[in-house]
Design a protein around this nucleic acid. Structure first.
Lengths: 217, 217
DNA sequence: TCTATATTTGACCAAACAGTTAATCCATAA
DNA sequence: TTATGGATTAACTGTTTGGTCAAATATAGA
């Protein structure tokens, strides 16, 4: 069954991804993964020696998938406002299809912080920053965006996009009580979150240069 | 040892809280909790019959602790801007002392959604909304805050406060690379997040009523 | 067709685990 | 002082779980 070689490995990988995301490393059972893949448990160990190796394979693949989503932010030749809108639209759409990935990630990163460091050490953040700074020099001045506030700004943007999915059970329950549903709320959020950030920046502009808003520069 | 009765139960409870928050229900081990409490494992079962009951005791206590933090928002006679600042200051200070509670909660709520419903069904959100609406009627009109946008606004506020702690390992790694530290970032955040929300609202005001900003009403 | 190799399985194992039990300890009250 | 009963423990039990292994089955090349 050379044909089945890749097929089986693929089936295992997909089943493992599903189960690990759903239950986490601690909660996942090898038997459960085998059942999901429709194969014998021993076969899991044939392809991936241990639970740990299988988990790592899944985790690394998901990491790659996730980081790819940020790339367009640095490549595209869009205005800053367009980029913000683009990001929320794309990122939230991705999370709509993979709502449990954020919780899974944050969890496993607490469980194994050294892994996080390895992943992030590979990313050259300064390069990205310099790139962004060059592309949006005028906007950065206008909105008074300094290097020191990247952490605050970036985590705020990430928070607005990711949090609703991490808190989904709580939010769903709350909204149920108020007569709203989660899905439309998320759909709406793509625009709301972008407005949220852009409005905040615009107000900083006003604060910074109260009289000469669009005339200056 | 009648004296030790309460003391022991308390010790167990504290140890369990620590371990459950750290490892979650699936990752926690009864032996580990016993070790943390400095007692025999059988004693855990003597006071709390099963792991599940012990977990529920811890979970319920933490829920109460967490919800209490929101009470002042509805009682205090502060302006809306003051309330926003108050909330971020208090809430983030609480999370500084209990940084792992959010992850713990979101996780366990995914694991057991029916529990969430039970907790939230007890809260009368509409009452809170009506209360807020009455207290800040003018602000609500000024900033064009409608009932339909509570979910978006509320989750955004929660996100800005909670997310940094849920993503702490990732954020720490990123900032390490940029030469920043997590603790000052959090300290700074108490004000930044409040400004973020307030600025966003002020811009909505500008958008909504471009000419008559402080003169009107 | 026969053989060597890769894939798949059922049965098994040892460790880890939540939970039990019977015996011991110890403060107290009579 | 001693009898009582709650608190505490060491040792144990039954089950679940990750992992192994030898046998069985399928595949491809000669």
């Amino acid at each position: 069954m050379v044909k089945n070689n890749k097929q089986t490995e693929q089936k295992i990988f997909e089943a493992a991804t599903e189960v690990f995301i759903e239950k986490g490393m601690d909660g996942a059972r090898m038997q459960d993964i085998a059942d999901h893949a429709g194969i014998n448990k021993a076969l899991l160990h044939y392809y991936y020696r241990t639970k740990d190796r299988l988990f790592n394979a899944v985790f690394d693949a998901l990491t790659g998938q996730l980081f790819k989503k940020f790339a367009p932010l640095f490549d595209e030749t869009l205005t800053m406002e367009e980029k913000i809108r683009f990001f929320f639209r794309e990122h939230i759409t991705f999370l709509q299809k993979n709502p449990r990935i954020p919780t899974f990630f944050m969890n496993e990163m607490y469980r194994n912080p050294s892994r996080v460091r390895k992943i992030i050490q590979r990313v050259d953040i300064n390069k990205f920053w310099i790139q962004l700074e060059a592309q949006h020099k005028e906007d950065f001045i206008k909105y008074n965006i300094t290097r020191e506030m990247i952490p605050q700004l970036m985590t705020s943007i990430a928070a607005l996009s990711v949090f609703p999915f991490m808190a989904k059970p709580v939010i769903t329950s709350f909204m149920e009580k108020m007569g709203y549903a989660f899905d439309p709320y998320i759909e709406e959020r793509k625009e709301y979150a972008a407005d949220f950030v852009i409005n905040m920046l615009k107000q900083r502009e006003t604060d910074h240069k109260p009289k000469k808003s669009s005339t200056e520069k």
